[in-house]
Amino acid sequence: MMEERTASFGIGQVIHHRLFNYRGVIFDVDPDFKGTEEWFQKNVEAGSPTKEEPWYHVLIDQDGRVAYVAERNLEAEETVEPVEHPLLENFFTGFAGDHYQARQTLN
C-alpha cells in the first residue's frame, strides 16, 4: 500500500525558498518528483531532497524564471505582497489578500 502524501503548500500560495532566498508563487504541485533522473542528478545534492516528497512548480518573483522545488526547501512567505512575473496571468486571475486565485482548469 502506498503512503499518502499531503502537500504543505497550495497553488496560489506565496512562498520563500530557504536556501536560495527568493520569493515566488506556486502554480502546480506534484505529490512526488516527476522530473527526469538526469535533472535530479544534476540539480540535487546528496542528502538533499528526496523524490518521495511533494515538489512544487514556482514562478520566481521579479525574475521571470520558473523553479521546480522540493517541499523541504520552502517555507511560507511572511510578506503579503504580490509577486511580479510575466507568466502570472497564465495561471492566476488575481491576488486576493495573501494568495493568488487560480484560473479554472479542465483536469
Rank of each mutant, 00 (worst) to 15 (best):
G97L: 12
H99M: 15
L87I: 04
T105E: 10
E4T: 10
K42D: 10
N107E: 14
Y68N: 03
A67Q: 06
A7M: 13
A102I: 02
E3K: 11
F33A: 04
N107H: 14
E89Y: 03
Q101G: 02
R72Y: 01
A96E: 15
E77W: 09
F95K: 09
I26K: 03
V14W: 05
Y56N: 00
H16W: 14
P31Q: 08
E77Y: 12
H99I: 03
N73T: 08
Q62I: 07
G24A: 09
V25K: 08
M1Q: 14
R72A: 06
G24M: 06
G64R: 12
E71V: 09
K34H: 14
A46T: 12
E38P: 02
G10K: 15
D28Y: 07
S8Q: 10
A70C: 02
L59H: 04
E37I: 09
G97Q: 09
N73D: 15
F33N: 07
V83G: 00
H16A: 13
A102V: 02
V44D: 00
V29Q: 09
Y56A: 00
G94A: 05
E77P: 01
G64W: 15
K42S: 08
I11T: 10
P31D: 08
F40N: 08
P31M: 12
Q104D: 14
L74V: 02
H16K: 05
G35Q: 04
T79C: 11
L88M: 08
F27T: 01
V66F: 10
V44F: 01
V69D: 00
W39C: 12
E81P: 00
E53C: 07
A67E: 01
E71T: 02
E78K: 09
E37H: 15
L59V: 00
A102Y: 01
F20C: 02
L88Q: 02
V29H: 05
P31L: 11
E4N: 13
G94I: 05
G24E: 10
T93Q: 06
V29Y: 10
L88G: 03
F40E: 09
G94R: 14
G10H: 10
F20V: 01
P49E: 05
F92L: 03
W55P: 01
N73C: 08
D98Y: 10
E45M: 11
E71R: 04
A70E: 06
E53F: 02
E81A: 14
G47Q: 07
A70L: 02
V80L: 12
I11F: 03
G24L: 06
F95T: 03
H16T: 09
H99V: 02
G64S: 03
Q101E: 15
P49G: 08
V58Q: 05
S8V: 02
E75F: 00
P31Y: 14
P82N: 08
R72M: 10
K42I: 06
F91M: 05
Q101S: 11
H57W: 15
M1V: 13
E78G: 05
